Simulated scan of single mutants.
Amino acid sequence: MDQHFIVMMIPHHDGAIAMADLALTRAKRPEIRALAGSIKASQTEENAQMRAWYRAWFGGNVPTWGGAMGHGGGMAGMGMGGTGTDIAWLKNAPDFDRAFIEQMIPHHRMGVMMASMAQTGSQHPELLALQQAMVKVQSAEIAQMAGWYRRWYGTP
Rank of each mutant, 00 (worst) to 15 (best):
G66E: 12
M113W: 13
V62R: 03
M110H: 12
M114I: 07
Q119H: 03
H107L: 09
V112G: 11
I6K: 09
H12F: 12
T83Q: 04
R109H: 09
G70A: 05
R51G: 00
G79I: 09
W148M: 11
P30K: 00
H71W: 11
A16K: 05
E126N: 05
M1F: 15
L127V: 14
G81N: 05
L35G: 08
F96A: 00
G79K: 09
R98E: 10
A146R: 13
A34N: 12
W53P: 08
P106I: 05
H107F: 06
V137D: 07
F58Y: 14
F96Q: 00
H13E: 03
L130H: 04
H13A: 04
Q144P: 04
H71C: 13
G154N: 10
G111K: 13
R55V: 01
E126M: 03
T155R: 14
W152R: 01
M114F: 09
S116V: 01
M110Q: 12
A140T: 08
L35H: 06
G70Q: 05
A118W: 02
G72M: 08
L22I: 04
R98S: 10
G147T: 04
W65S: 07
R55F: 01
A56E: 13
N92Q: 13
H107T: 07
W53N: 03
I87T: 08
P94F: 00
R29H: 10
T83E: 07
T85M: 14
P106N: 04
F96P: 00
L35C: 07
A115Q: 08
A118P: 06
W152N: 02
W65L: 11
H4G: 14
V135G: 09
A56W: 00
D14P: 03
H108S: 03
I10P: 09
P106E: 03
R29Q: 11
M1R: 14
K136G: 10
M114S: 09
R33S: 15
F96D: 05
Q138G: 00
H107R: 10
L127G: 08
N47W: 00
Q132H: 07
I101G: 01
